[in-house]
Design a protein around this nucleic acid. Structure first.
Length: 872
RNA sequence: GGGCGUGUAGCUCAGUGGUAGAGCGUCGCGUUUACACCGCGAAUGUCGGCGGUUCGAAACCGUCCACGCCCA
C-alpha cells in the first residue's frame, strides 16, 4: 500500500464508464425538488433574466430548440453560479392556426367540423386537446436539463396573459395605432384565414406567362399575366403616362374578353414600361399592387372568388377552382384567338402558407391592423442608439432592413382559437373597444367581433406579460427588463422585432432586453438543411438516449459560432460522449489517488513545477472562459475547456503526476490537493454546458450539495511563466523521445534502459516522471548507448541492445533538418531585407532573430547526430 | 432585380497583417495507476482564380468564378 491511501475515508467507487441514463433523470428531479431554478423576486441579488422564446404548444423538441436551450441554459446557470438571482422563464404560445388545425383534423376523423360543435364547444375541445397532447416539449426540456423556473411556467392563453393582450389592444386602439380597414391580405384558402406577410413563404415555381389581347383593331392592347383567371376581375388596364406606345389610348375604354365588360385604360406612374408589353391588367380585388392602382384611380374592386378560392362569377367558370379556372380561361381565350404569346415554363415566385403550404390568394378583406410606423421606428432606434445590442453585430442589418420597411401588420385571424378581438359593434354602427376591466355594452343588437388575434400579437408581449404586466407585480419590478433574448436569426421578424415594438411601447420606452443573441440554424453533418423531404431530420431524444444529454449539449455548444449555422452529425455527438467519459475517468483516477478539495493549497514553494504549471494554466483558462462567455462565444469557450481538460490536465498533468502519486508522501499530498483544485474548478467551468456529468462528479469529489449552486470560479491571478517554460521543455523532451521510439518501431510499452543527462537544464526534478512516461529503465551494468538524442539541452542515451534502424533514424533526422533549414532560409531572408528591419516593429524582428538562432542550433545538433550515425 | 454572407486538410469548421490550426476521418504501433468511449506516433493544404496595397496578405482593396440566405 502506498502512503496516499491514508486519505480520510475510502474514496467512492466509480464505475469505469459514465452511464448518463442512470444519473440524468434523478439529478434533474433533485434540482427541481430543491428549487434551485426558482427565482426569488424578494432577493437582494442582482437579477438576470431570460424568457424562453415560447415554443408552439403543438410542437416537440427539435435540434434547433435543443441548440438554443443549451445556450440559454448555459448563460443562466453561469449567472446563477456568479451570484445573480437568475430567472429562466419557460412557457409556450397557443399557436392559433396550428392548434386549431390539429383539433379540426381530430374532428374530421369523427366526421365533424368545428361548425357542428359551435364556437364555445370547439374552444373547449381545444383546451382538452392541449391538456391531453399539448406541451410535449416541456417534458423533453427536462430531459435536456433545462434549468427553467417551472413555478413560473406561462401560456399565452392564460388568464393573466390574455389580460395583457386585451390591455395593450385597448391602449393601441385608443392611441390610434390599431384600426380596421379593407385591404388586400394574404388569404389561405385552406386555413380560411388571413395571415401576415411573414407567414407567407415565397418559392420559385414553374408557371406560365400568357399574353392576352384586350379589345379590337386600333384600340387593341396586349397584357401579360401569370394568373390568367384573374382577368375575370379586371377593372382596368394601366400603362405608364409617358409611354408613347399607349398615350393615345389613355382615357379610352377597351372590351374585356369573355365578359363583355368595358374597362378603362388608365395612366399610372408605377407601371414599368420595360416589363412585357408595358401594359398591365388591373385586378384590384386580387392583387396588392393592383389594389393600389385601383385606389389611385377610383376603380371598382371586383371579387371573383370565394373563401375557398373557387370562382364565383361568370357562368362557364363559376364553381371552378382557381387553377382549373386558369386553364379554362386560357383555353377560352385561345379559341377566340386572343392569346398572343405563351411562355411556359415561366419561373416566378409564388407565395405559400407557412403552415400548410397552400398557395396564398391575395384577397380583398376587412381586417384589423396595427399601424407599425411609430412602433417600428422606436424598435429601430433602440438598436441604433446602442440601448440594445445585436450579437453578432453583422446581423443588425437584417433587423434594420425589416424594421425600417415594415408594412402595417394585419392582426385579425378568422379562427376560433386565440384571443378574441375586444371590439363590439352596436345596432347603429357603433364600434366600442373594451378594456380588461370594462363591461361590454349590453342590450339588443350588440355583437363582438368574430375574429381572434394573431398569435404573434400575444408572443410580442411575452417579456413582460409573463412577469405579470399590466400589474406592477414584484416579478415585473425585479426581472424586467430581461437581459438576453436568444433565438435563431430566422426568427428576428417573428419575435424579436415584435417584442421590441411592444416592450418599448408598453414599458415606457424600456426595451425588453439589452442583448439580442442570434444563432444560426442546425444543419446535418454535410451542412445541409434538415427537412422532412431530405429525410435527414434527427430527433434529439434519440441522441440523448444513446449518448447522454451532455454529449448532445456539448456538441451543440461547440458548434455555436456566432450567427453561423451549426452542422451536427452522430459522429460528433459520439465524440462529445467520449469527452464526458474522459472527464469521468480522470476524476475517477483522481479519487483513487487521494485528490481532495479539503484545506488550503500548499505553499508555492512546496509545489512541483507541474503543480505550478497547471495552476497557472487553470487560472488563465478561467479568465479566458469568462471573457468568451461575456462575448457569447460558446464554440470558443467549449473548445478552450475541451483542450485545457484533455490536452493539458489529462494528457500531461495527470501523467506527470503519476510518479508523484506512486511515490506517496508529502509531495503526493501536495499534488493531490492541486489535482482536486484543478478538477473542482474545471467541473464548475464546464457545468453550464454539461450539467449532468459535472454534477455527478463534483458532488462525489467535493462531498458538497450541488455544483448548480456552487460559486463560479474566479481567476486568482496566479501565473507562473517559469513553470510553464519548464514543463514546455519536459514536453519537448518526451515528445522527441517518443518520436524516436515510434520511428524505431519500438512498442509503446517496451522498456528500454537509458541514461538521462539533465544537468544544466534545470529539468533534474523530472527524471522520474520522464522515465515513467517513456518507459525508460535505469541503466544497468551492461549499459551501452546505441542511440543518443540531444533535445532541449538535455541528452537521452538509449540502449536498444542491438543495432538500431539507422535508415529510419536518418530519415527522421533528414526531415527535421529540412524543416530547420527552411526555417533558417526564411528567417535569413527576412533579416537580410533592409525594408523589413526598418519598418517591422521591434518585437517582430526580435522574434525572427530568435527563430534564426533556434534554427541554427537545430541544424548544428541534427547535423552532428547524422554524422554520428553508423554508415549504411 | 436589391441586400447580406460564404469559399482554408478527405468531411465540418476556427483563424482581424508577422512560422497555416482544431474536431472527425485516414495510416502505423499498442492492455502503461483512470479511460480502447483509450494511449503514442505519422500523413494531408497553389488558404476559390487573377490583380493591387504592404517590409510582410489566408486576413485589407479591386475584379472574376462558385455556392448559400433574406427581401422584392
Amino acid at each position: 500500500m502506498t502512503e496516499n491511501t491514508q486519505q480520510p475515508a475510502s474514496p467512492p467507487e466509480l464505475p469505469t464508464q459514465y452511464a448518463p441514463a442512470e444519473v440524468e433523470g434523478q439529478l434533474y428531479e433533485r434540482w427541481v425538488e430543491r428549487g434551485y431554478f426558482e427565482a426569488d423576486a424578494k432577493s437582494d441579488k442582482k437579477p438576470y433574466t431570460i424568457v424562453i422564446p415560447p415554443p408552439n404548444v403543438t410542437g416537440s423538441l427539435h435540434l434547433g430548440h435543443a441548440f438554443q436551450h443549451t445556450l440559454m441554459d448555459a448563460l443562466t446557470r453561469r449567472k446563477r453560479m456568479q451570484g445573480y438571482e437568475a430567472l429562466w422563464l419557460p412557457g409556450m404560445d397557443h399557436a392559433g392556426i396550428a392548434t386549431q388545425n390539429k383539433v379540426e383534423q381530430q374532428l374530421a376523423e369523427e366526421g365533424k367540423s368545428r361548425h357542428d360543435l359551435g364556437r364555445e364547444a370547439f374552444v373547449e375541445r381545444v383546451w382538452q386537446w392541449k391538456e391531453e397532447y399539448g406541451g410535449k416539449i416541456l417534458g423533453q426540456m427536462r430531459r435536456l436539463g433545462d434549468g427553467v423556473d417551472w413555478s413560473r411556467e406561462r401560456f399565452t392563453m392564460d388568464e393573466g396573459l390574455s389580460r395583457a393582450v386585451q390591455t395593450i389592444f385597448k391602449k393601441l386602439y385608443d392611441d390610434g395605432l390599431i384600426y380596421r380597414a379593407e385591404r388586400i391580405i394574404n388569404w389561405c384558402p385552406r386555413c380560411l384565414t388571413a395571415i401576415s406577410d411573414i407567414e407567407v413563404e415565397h418559392e420559385d415555381r414553374d408557371g406560365e406567362l400568357v399574353s392576352i389581347r384586350y379589345g379590337q383593331g386600333e384600340n387593341a392592347i396586349v397584357v401579360a399575366t401569370t394568373r390568367a383567371e384573374t382577368m375575370l376581375g379586371d377593372t382596368a388596364v394601366a400603362v405608364h403616362p409617358d409611354d408613347e406606345r399607349y398615350r393615345h389610348l389613355i382615357g379610352t375604354e377597351v372590351e374585356l374578353p369573355l365578359t363583355g365588360r368595358r374597362i378603362p385604360i388608365v395612366a399610372d406612374a408605377h407601371v414599368d414600361p420595360a416589363f412585357g408589353t408595358g401594359a398591365v391588367k388591373v385586378t384590384p380585388a386580387h392583387d396588392p399592387n393592383d389594389f393600389e392602382i385601383g385606389q389611385r384611380h377610383n376603380l371598382p374592386s371586383l371579387t371573383i372568388m370565394d373563401e375557398h378560392a373557387v370562382i364565383t362569377v361568370h357562368g362557364p367558370f363559376q364553381g371552378l377552382d382557381r387553377l382549373e379556372a386558369r386553364s379554362a380561361v386560357v383555353g377560352a381565350l385561345r379559341s377566340q384567338g386572343r392569346i398572343v404569346a405563351e411562355k411556359r415554363p415561366y419561373v416566378h415566385a409564388v407565395g405559400h402558407c407557412s403552415r400548410c403550404k397552400t398557395i396564398i390568394e391575395p384577397r380583398l378583406s376587412l381586417q384589423w391592423w396595427v399601424k407599425v410606423e411609430p412602433l417600428a421606428k422606436a424598435a429601430g432606434d433602440a438598436v441604433r442608439d446602442g440601448r440594445v445590442k445585436i450579437h453578432p453585430q453583422e446581423m443588425s442589418g437584417r433587423y434594420f432592413q425589416w424594421v425600417d420597411n415594415m408594412h402595417d401588420w394585419c392582426i385579425s385571424r378568422q379562427l376560433w382559437w386565440g384571443h378574441r378581438i375586444p371590439v363590439w359593434y352596436g345596432p347603429d354602427g357603433e364600434v366600442v373597444c373594451v378594456g380588461p376591466d370594462e363591461q361590454p355594452p349590453a342590450g339588443e343588437g350588440w355583437t363582438q367581433d368574430a375574429d381572434v388575434l394573431d398569435t404573434w400579437f400575444s408572443s410580442g408581449l411575452w417579456p413582460f406579460s409573463t412577469l405579470g404586466w399590466p400589474e406592477q407585480t414584484p416579478d415585473l419590478v425585479k426581472f424586467y427588463p430581461t437581459d438576453v433574448l436568444l433565438t435563431g436569426h430566422d426568427i428576428i421578424f417573428f419575435w424579436v422585432a415584435r417584442m421590441m415594438m411592444f416592450g418599448l411601447y408598453a414599458m415606457d420606452g424600456v426595451a425588453p432586453f439589452h442583448t439580442i443573441a442570434l444563432t444560426g440554424l442546425v444543419r446535418d453533418e454535410r451542412g445541409k438543411k434538415m427537412s422532412k423531404s431530405f429525410g435527414n431530420v434527427v430527433d434529439p431524444l434519440d441522441w440523448m438516449d444513446k449518448y447522454g444529454s451532455d454529449a448532445l449539449r456539448f456538441t451543440l455548444a461547440r458548434g455555436a459560432n456566432p450567427g453561423t449555422d451549426v452542422p451536427i452529425g452522430e459522429d460528433w455527438v459520439q465524440g462529445s460522449r467520449n469527452f464526458t467519459n474522459k472527464i469521468w475517468n480522470a476524476t475517477r483516477f483522481a479519487l483513487m489517488n487521494g485528490a481532495t478539495v479539503e484545506g488550503p493549497l500548499s505553499s508555492v514553494e512546496e509545489m512541483s513545477a507541474a503543480d505550478r504549471w497547471i495552476l497557472s494554466r487553470l487560472n488563465a483558462t478561467v479568465a479566458e472562459t469568462d471573457a468568451l462567455y461575456d462575448d457569447y462565444q460558446f464554440a470558443k469557450l467549449s473548445d478552450a475547456l475541451f483542450h485545457f481538460a484533455w490536452d493539458e490536465v489529462f494528457d500531461w498533468y495527470v501523467e506527470l503526476s503519476k510518479t508523484t502519486f506512486i511515490a506517496g508522501g508529502r509531495p503526493a499530498q501536495v499534488s493531490g490537493r492541486v489535482l482536486g483544485e484543478v478538477l473542482d474548478v474545471l467541473l464548475r467551468l464546464l457545468h453550464p454546458v454539461v450539467p449532468f456529468v459535472t454534477e455527478a462528479l463534483w458532488t462525489t469529489l467535493t462531498g458538497r450539495e450541488s455544483v448548480v449552486v456552487a460559486d463560479w470560479p474566479t481567476d486568482s491571478g496566479f501565473r507562473d511563466a517559469a513553470a510553464e517554460a519548464e514543463i514546455g521543455a519536459v514536453q519537448s523532451l518526451i515528445t522527441e523521445v517518443r518520436r524516436f521510439r515510434a520511428d524505431q518501431g519500438l512498442q509503446p510499452g517496451q522498456k528500454v534502459p537509458a541514461r538521462l543527462e539533465l544537468s544544466g537544464t534545470g529539468l533534474g526534478a523530472h527524471e522520474a516522471a520522464v522515465r515513467q512516461i517513456l518507459r525508460l529503465q535505469p541503466e544497468g551494468d551492461a549499459f551501452t548507448a546505441t542511440a543518443t538524442l540531444p533535445v532541449a539541452g538535455a541528452t537521452v542515451a538509449l540502449d536498444l541492445s542491438g543495432t538500431i534502424d539507422v535508415e529510419a533514424e536518418r530519415k527522421r533526422l533528414a526531415k527535421d533538418l529540412a524543416a530547420a533549414e527552411k526555417e533558417r532560409a526564411q528567417a535569413t531572408a527576412k533579416l537580410g531585407n533592409d525594408a523589413f528591419l526598418a519598418k517591422a516593429p521591434e518585437p517582430v524582428v526580435d522574434k525572427i532573430r530568435t527563430r534564426l538562432a533556434a534554427a541554427e542550433a537545430d541544424i548544428a545538433r541534427i547535423t552532428a547526430q547524422l554524422a554520428s550515425l553508423p554508415q549504411a
